[in-house]
Amino acid sequence: MNKYMPMCPVQWLTARHQQPLLPILHHFNLLGLFSAQKYDSQINYTAGLPGTFITTAVQSPLASPNTVGTEGFDANTFVSYAGRLTYDYKVKYLFTAAVRQDASSRFGPNNRYAVFPSFSLGWRLSEEPFLKPILEKVKINELKLRGGYGRTGNANIGSFTYVNAITLNKNYASGNNRLYGSQQSGFANPDLTWEKNDQTSVGADLGFFNNNVVITADYFVRNSNGMLLSKALPLDVGYATTYQANLGKLQNKGFEFSATTSFNLGQVRWVANANFSTYRTKVLDLGGPSSLPA
């Protein structure tokens, strides 16, 4: 009995070693992301009016009996959650999906959150048994077709565009006295929301001579909707001439081509790159003929 027990693990390991290892056919990869940003800015400014200084040697605001001042404040926050899944079967059929949710305080409470999805598919034809012999004859070791769709957002606007702002450095004359006051500035748009960009693309990758020559080709179409532009206001508003609105539509489409070669010349390795691209931009909508100031 004592002789048999130590032999059991040895026999078991030997049996496992003699069996062929099963290849891993499925590959998964999960990624999660969280980020938070906060920006604060405060400015205080005081100046004496020219020609009112007691002495010209030191032009300090305190040396002037007539001063003006202003104060500014800016603050915004940005929070993001994102997740990505990548999967392939036999490193031949490829799939990637991602989703991202962003929140920005630059928009009103009803439009601060936006979801941006994306996905892509790939097919490595060079790994298909029925094509591999044909491709090897012409020295092609990599041939992949791919396509994808993705949405991104833009929040590059002022921090408080969705509400009416107050300007403090407004001065009024009353006889010989200077009076300080405030004035409403900007025109609120509580419906302001994210600018969204949707892009669809298809492409192919081609590798020759063990990838010493690589050719890549892509075609894409990108549509921008709800672009953040300034819209004209009637003159009788009095305190503002324009305000921010989601009213623009733009389309970009194009073709991108690149080729890379690498080879050894003695003890030196040479790498050469060539690129060619075409782009076409078309303005689809600017909110009407009277929406933008001349």
Rank of each mutant, 00 (worst) to 15 (best):
P9E: 05
P9N: 02
W12H: 02
R16M: 03
R16F: 00
R16L: 05
Q18G: 04
Q18K: 09
Q19W: 01
L21V: 15
I24T: 05
H26W: 01
G32S: 05
S35F: 00
S35D: 12
A36R: 10
Q42R: 09
Q42P: 01
T46S: 07
L49Q: 11
T52A: 13
V58Y: 11
S60P: 03
L62D: 11
A63C: 00
S64L: 14
T67Q: 15
G69V: 11
G69Y: 14
T77D: 15
T77F: 04
V79N: 13
S80R: 10
G83A: 14
Y87G: 01
D88H: 07
K90S: 08
K92Y: 08
F95L: 14
F95S: 04
A97E: 05
A98D: 12
R100M: 05
S120L: 02
G122L: 03
G122F: 03
R124Q: 02
L125F: 13
E127Y: 15
L131T: 10
L135R: 10
E136L: 08
K137W: 02
N141G: 08
L145F: 13
G148E: 05
Y149H: 10
A155D: 05
N156C: 01
I157K: 03
G158R: 09
S159F: 09
S159I: 01
F160A: 06
Y162S: 07
K170N: 14
N171C: 01
Y172K: 02
S174W: 00
N176P: 06
N176W: 10
N176S: 14
N177A: 04
N177V: 08
Q183P: 07
N189G: 13
E195Y: 02
K196F: 09
D198F: 09
Q199R: 15
G203F: 03
L206Y: 07
F208A: 10
F209T: 02
N211V: 03
N212G: 08
Y219S: 07
F220M: 11
R222N: 15
M227L: 13
L228K: 08
P234C: 06
Y239A: 04
Y239I: 07
Y239N: 10
A240N: 10
A240C: 09
Q244Y: 08
N246C: 13
N246F: 06
L247I: 15
G248H: 00
K253R: 15
F255K: 11
S258W: 08
A259N: 05
T261Y: 04
L265M: 01
V268S: 04
W270R: 00
A272F: 10
F276H: 11
T278W: 00
G288P: 12
G288F: 12
L292I: 12
L292E: 00
